[in-house]
C-alpha cells in the first residue's frame, strides 16, 4: 500500500471512528431526552439482540452456520433464570455463569461436528436447538414448560433507565471484545479458513481448532445476551428461541451486511426499530419486516454495509476524477 492510499484509508477509518463516537454519545443521552419508557424498553431489547447478532456473526465468519443459535440464547436465559430463581444465586453471578455454561454446550456440538463439512454442523446445531427447546418445554415447573418461565430475579430495582445503561454498557463491552477478537491474528486466520479450506490447510492452520474457538466465543456471547435479557424481562418463553428466532438473528446479520463488523449492529436496529415504528398496523406489521428483507435481497445484496461501501467507493472515484480533471487543466 502506498502512502497516499494509506492516508485515504486512515481518513475513512477516522471518519468511521467519528461516527461511532457520535452514535455512542447519542445513545448515551437518549434516556435524558426521552420520556417514553416504552421506547427505552425497545432500545434495551435492541441492545441485547445486537449482542446476539454479533455473536452469530463471529461464528459465521469462520465459515459455519449455527442454525440453532437462538436456542443457545435460550440456554443462557434459562440457565441464568433457573439458577437465580431456584438456587437463589445473585444474577451478577448467574449471568456470567450462564454464558460460560452456554459456551460449554456450544463447544460440545462444535467438537462433535468439527471434522465434517459445514453443512453438518449447521444441521447438528439446528436439531440440537430444537431438542433444547423441546426439553425446556418438557421441564414442568422447573422451566415453566409451554406457558413460559416467570419470576426471574430482577435487577436494578426494575428501573428502565438503569437497565438501559446496563444493556448499553454490556453491548459496547461485548462489541469491543468481539472486535478485538475478529482483528486479532486468530480472527484473521479464522477468516482465511472460511475463504478456503485447502489454502488454510496448506499453510498449516488447524481448521478444527479455529472453528471450535469461533463457536466457543459466539456461544459465550449469545448466552450472555440471553441471560441478561431474561433478567430484564422477568418472564421468558421457549418460542423466543426457536428456529425462526435463529433465522431472524441471521436476518439482522445479513441485512446489516455480513462482511462488515458493524453490519449486525445496524441490521438489528433496522429490523427491530422500523417494524416497531409501524406497530399500529397490528396483524399486518410483519409485512414491513418482509418488505425490508426483499428490499435488501433484490436491491442491496451486500446489506447496509455494502451500500455504504459502494457509496464511499463512488465518492472516491468521483473525487479522483475531479482531481484528474483539475490536473489536466
Amino acid at each position: 500500500m502506498n502512502a497516499l492510499s494509506r492516508f485515504a484509508a486512515d481518513k475513512t477509518r477516522s471518519a468511521g471512528y467519528g461516527i461511532l463516537v457520535v452514535a455512542v454519545i447519542l445513545l448515551g443521552v437518549i434516556p435524558l431526552l426521552m420520556e417514553s419508557l416504552y421506547s427505552l424498553h425497545i432500545l434495551v431489547m435492541v441492545f441485547f439482540y445486537v449482542i446476539a447478532a454479533l455473536s452469530l456473526r463471529a461464528i459465521v465468519i469462520s465459515g459455519q452456520f449455527p442454525l440453532g443459535h437462538a436456542a443457545f440464547m435460550g440456554v443462557g436465559a434459562y440457565a441464568s433464570g433457573m439458577a437465580a430463581k431456584w438456587l437463589h444465586l445473585p444474577p451478577e453471578l448467574t449471568i456470567p455463569g450462564a454464558a460460560v455454561f452456554t459456551m460449554i454446550i456450544g463447544v460440545m456440538v462444535a467438537v462433535s461436528f468439527s471434522r465434517l463439512r459445514a453443512l453438518y454442523y449447521a444441521m447438528g446445531s439446528l436439531f440440537l436447538g430444537v431438542a433444547i427447546i423441546q426439553i425446556l418445554n418438557a421441564g414442568g415447573t422447573w422451566t415453566g414448560g409451554y406457558s413460559g418461565f416467570s419470576g426471574i430475579t430482577p435487577m436494578f430495582g426494575n428501573s428502565k433507565v438503569s437497565w438501559y445503561y446496563a444493556a448499553l454498557g454490556l453491548m459496547i463491552l461485548s462489541a469491543a471484545a468481539l472486535y478485538r477478537f475478529e482483528f486479532s491474528r486468530i480472527g484473521t486466520n479464522m477468516k482465511a479458513i472460511s475463504q478456503s479450506h485447502l489454502v488454510a490447510e496448506s499453510v498449516g492452520i488447524n481448521e478444527a481448532k479455529y472453528r471450535i474457538l469461533a463457536v466457543a466465543i459466539g456461544s459465550f456471547f449469545v448466552g450472555l445476551a440471553g441471560a441478561g435479557y431474561a433478567h430484564y424481562m422477568g418472564t421468558i418463553a421457549t418460542s423466543s428461541y426457536n428456529f425462526m428466532a435463529t433465522m431472524w438473528l441471521f436476518m439482522y446479520v445479513l441485512v446489516g451486511g455480513v462482511n462488515n463488523f458493524f453490519g449486525p449492529i445496524v441490521g438489528s436496529f433496522i429490523l427491530i426499530l422500523i417494524p416497531e415504528y409501524f406497530r399500529s398496523l397490528k396483524t399486518y406489521s410483519p409485512f414491513i419486516s418482509a418488505g425490508i428483507l426483499f428490499l435488501f435481497v433484490y436491491l442491496m445484496p451486500g446489506g447496509f454495509a455494502g451500500l455504504i461501501q459502494a457509496a464511499v467507493a463512488r465518492v472516491k472515484s468521483w473525487r479522483r476524477e475531479r482531481a484528474r480533471d483539475v490536473a489536466a487543466d
Binding site: T283, Y284, P286, F287
Partner: peptide, 20 residues
C-alpha cells in the same frame, strides 16, 4: 445468504397473509 433471506421473507408474507 440471499436464498435464506428470501425464504424467510416469503415465509413471513404467507403467515401474515393467512393471519390477516
Amino acid at each position: 445468504n440471499r436464498i435464506v433471506m428470501v425464504g424467510v421473507g416469503i415465509n413471513v408474507v404467507l403467515q401474515t397473509a393467512v393471519n390477516a
